[in-house]
Design a protein around this nucleic acid. Structure first.
Length: 293
RNA sequence: GCAGAGAUGGCGGAGUGGACAAUCGCGGCUGACUGUAAAUCAGUUGCCAUUACGGCUACGAAGGUUCGAAUCCUUCUCUCUGCA
């Protein structure tokens, strides 16, 4: 039995689809979403809970904590085993591409994050970071592409890893290798970008109606701050600006929409790069899964 | 009605005689991304051509000065502010 992975852009209807599939094939849902892991942040992360279908990996940490691809991979593997032991089918659904990729292709992800080191390196310029990295291993010069070289977060991460191995980095052409897997069926809903953007705008309006502002105030009231990782995501970031009177409601909506649309484009690029992800029409996915599982 | 300020590429906003097809930001498009990923970063962005230090049209409109104007002058149109 294969495991099912549903990926795709935000607001493209993944959750509903996953629910229907779960009902139909006796499955349980595992959320692959870097925001829905947060407790208290429901409206802005479009969290959904179902009474009859179990959803894993939501509400597992507080807004001041961090989750990661590595933790996701490990947690999910355990949960998959449990689900399969019950004779059910795991359905992994979410828009955090790094998470699903780490799981499906079993990326080794290298060393643990060293937050002290990260903090220390944060203040440096990208030129300084490059020098540090090249002094660790000059080969990085060849491996890094132009995007990496200018990306401080990634430079820091490479320094943290410190070494280049095929396993934890992938080098040269290896980097763009096509991944392979036999355990998972990966699907994405076929929906054009304009349609999703329409849905995003609706969803944003809805979030405001449902009380995004109140939810944000409440979380701040619990003692969490706007610097916390949970609150620095789209929706809450802007809601805090609104609460602080830096923007009005129209600006709030516009900003959330714009950030979400930008996110969507990045997601589509990411998923589009994986040849193993099948793009299928919404109403054909269930049948496809039934016949290919 | 008088006085002042201004009209620049999809938007915001630089530029104040040549190196301006026009800094920059946003947006758009393409892309990168193996432990922060709703994060972070790269390329590209007038039209045509794409071999080229190439051609064309452009800085509210119309004229003018000049070898040369987004930049100076004249008139017109519109916008904003102060006085009436």
């Amino acid at each position: 039995m294969k495991k099912i992975v549903i990926v795709g852009g935000t607001a493209s209807g993944k959750t509903n689809l996953a629910y229907n599939i779960a009902k139909n094939i006796n499955g349980e849902i595992i959320s692959a979403d870097s925001r829905q892991v947060y407790k208290y942040l429901d409206i802005g992360s479009s969290k959904e809970r179902f009474e009859d279908i179990k959803t894993h990996l939501i509400d597992i940490i507080t807004p001041d904590q961090r989750y990661s691809a590595f933790l996701f991979k490990n947690d999910t593997k355990k949960i998959i085993q449990e689900i399969e032991l019950k004779g059910k089918i795991p359905i992994i659904v979410g828009g955090t591409g790094l998470y699903t990729r780490a799981l499906v292709y079993n990326l080794s992800l290298g060393k643990n994050p060293d937050f002290k080191l990260r903090k220390e390196l944060e203040g440096k310029t990208k030129e300084e970071l490059q020098d540090i990295l090249y002094s660790i291993n000059p080969k990085f010069k060849e491996i890094l592409n132009n995007s990496d070289r200018n990306n401080k977060i990634r430079l820091i991460r490479y320094i943290e890893k410190g070494e280049i191995t095929d396993d934890n980095f992938g080098s040269g052409s290896n980097r763009s290798r096509s991944f392979e897997n036999n355990e998972y069926i990966q699907v994405q809903i076929d929906m054009n970008k304009d349609e999703i953007i329409k849905r995003i705008r609706n969803r944003t309006n809805n979030m405001i109606k449902l009380g995004l502002i109140d939810e944000t105030s409440n979380v701040l009231g619990l003692g969490y701050s706007k610097e916390d990782p949970g609150l620095s995501m789209i929706g809450y970031k802007e809601a805090i600006e609104f609460i602080e009177n830096k923007i009005n409601q129209q600006e709030l909506i516009d900003k959330i929409n714009q950030s979400t649309i930008n996110l969507l484009k990045r997601q589509l690029t990411y998923f589009g790069g994986d040849k193993n992800i099948l793009t299928l029409e919404d109403n054909k996915i269930l049948d496809f899964i039934k016949t290919h599982i």
